[in-house]
Design a protein around this nucleic acid. Structure first.
Length: 424
RNA sequence: GGAGGGUUACCGAAGUGGUCAUAACGGGGCGGUCUUGAAAACCGUUUGAGAGCAAUCUCACAAGGGUUCGAAUCCCUUACCCUCCGCCA
């Protein structure tokens, strides 16, 4: 959502940046609507000022014993005129609002040109993809053979695209969640356990509604939704608030299950742990000052990378091109973990700066003493998707005989267990 | 599910149709006086949005409607919070 004033002032620049997304958003319509809106506001406010002045006179006139009937009749007429204008003002307001709601965020100046994922730019790599002296198995085969991954039973309980972990598989999920949250709290993120159901207003604040209604599970009989990511509750913690500027940056981390109705294109990644209707995720989140939000994005990204490094999982970092960038995002880094069975890097985290785009929708502002309220920048990233991390561990740490070693950093969280074998 | 009570500024709270959104009063915050410093005391200050070059004007008392010349105040609808009863993991 754009700020009307800012858009008016930076019209050409905004148009130029938006064009990088490879679509025409017909921004010219804004100028027409904005002009008309201001005319109507002026007209209606002039009449209201007149009405207010007369209304103040009436009591004193009455006190003096004068006849107020003619003035009251006149005001009745004015009142009717004002009321008649109201629907028009509201209509133009709504039209402008709807129009602006449909315009995505402007990509940051350094976001690369491009139309799809293929145009994303690799920024750096960490670790070396392992060369196996045997044919590495995909994680679903490994997991089923070890009895720690049981999609059939999950399907029996609910349906396809749901998973069930058992035994040390379930234990690994719990271990990873604890490990990740411990790392993040050490980096200054406050740990949050939020509701995983949110109402419509919260969804709108983050931009998941009206944009992605089809992706959300809606609870019948209520206007509640299952959250598609912890970003939803975390962003809404300070919704409609003005926070003290001295408190920035505000940093939260949270583990929650996440729920998505459309888990991706059919026929793609249909096996294993990758695209599920329900998946566990640890999220990191930040409210930052506008002037240093890109420094904070580097920091947040580093905090997510830290998890992969501590686990010893090879990965790369790519910067999303303008065409791949999410609706509300100004800049996004993807962390992609090496997945031997895919023979490529697979996304485990997206770290984004939304600048003030979400904050304007959600009304999140800060104020320095003596200053005016200013919209914060919001940032978030997965830190990390737990299922994808599990899949990456199974695949990268698999042995020729099908055993899976536990990464050193995770061993204490696994109660000292160092490997998973069919017997364990 | 049943019965009540509530929602006003940073917090508490008064205000039941007119000059009361320059929102009483109390607290907190900020600035100052006094003090070696602090506390206390005293004085001052302290919501946000929109229109306008500006002067200034408009809007907002949970949200949305209505009545009225005029609504924080009266009427209707909705949301949320609290208390008690019932049910319940």
């Amino acid at each position: 959502m754009f700020d009307i004033k800012a858009l008016r002032e930076n019209f050409e620049e905004t148009k130029r940046l938006l064009s990088k997304r490879g679509k025409d958003f017909q921004l010219e319509r804004f100028e027409t609507l904005d002009k008309r809106r201001r005319e109507l506001i002026r007209e209606s406010e002039d009449m209201k000022a007149k009405q207010n002045a007369a209304t103040k006179q009436i009591p004193s006139l009455k006190k003096e014993g004068k006849d107020t009937a003619p003035l009251m009749a006149e005001m009745k007429e004015l009142s009717d005129t004002i009321k008649a204008l109201e629907p028009e003002v509201r209509a133009i307001d709504e039209e402008l609002d709807d129009f602006l709601m449909g315009i995505p965020n402007t990509p940051h100046a350094t976001v690369p040109e491009g139309l799809s994922e293929a145009d994303n730019v690799e920024i750096r790599r960490w670790g070396e993809p392992l060369v196996f002296d045997f044919e590495p198995k995909p994680h679903w085969d490994l997991g089923e053979a070890l009895g720690i991954f049981d999609p059939a039973t999950a399907a029996k309980i609910t349906g396809s695209r749901f998973v069930m972990l058992r035994g040390l598989g379930a234990r690994m999920e719990r271990a990873l969640i604890s490990f990740m949250l411990d790392r993040h709290t050490a980096h200054g993120y406050e740990e949050i356990s939020p509701p995983v159901i949110a109402h419509r207003r919260s969804m709108e604040g983050v931009g998941q509604l009206p944009d992605k209604e089809g992706q959300l599970f809606h609870l019948s009989d209520t206007d509640y939704f299952l959250i598609p990511t912890a970003e939803t509750p975390l962003t809404n913690i300070h919704r409609e608030e003005i926070i003290d500027g001295a408190r920035l940056p505000v940093k939260f981390c949270a583990f929650t299950p996440s729920f998505r109705k459309e888990a991706g294109a059919a026929g793609r990644d249909t096996r294993g742990l990758i695209r599920m209707h329900q998946f566990p995720k640890v999220e990191i989140f930040m409210l930052a000052r506008p002037e240093n939000s890109y420094d904070e994005l580097e920091r947040l990204t580093a905090d997510a990378e830290d998890i992969l490094q501590k686990l010893g999982l090879p990965y790369n970092v790519t910067k999303q091109c303008a065409g791949d960038l999410g609706f509300a995002n100004a800049m996004t880094y993807d962390l992609n973990v090496w997945m031997p069975s895919y023979n490529k890097y697979v996304e485990v985290s997206s770290c984004s700066n939304f600048e003030a785009f979400q904050a304007r929708r959600a009304g999140i502002r800060f104020k320095d003493s003596g200053g005016k309220p200013v919209f914060t920048h919001t940032l978030n990233g997965s830190g990390l998707g737990v299922n994808r991390t599990i899949a990456a561990i199974w695949e990268n740490f698999q042995q020729a005989d099908g055993r899976v070693k536990i990464p050193g950093a995770l061993v204490p969280y696994m109660g000292g267990i160092t490997e998973i074998s069919a017997r364990s």
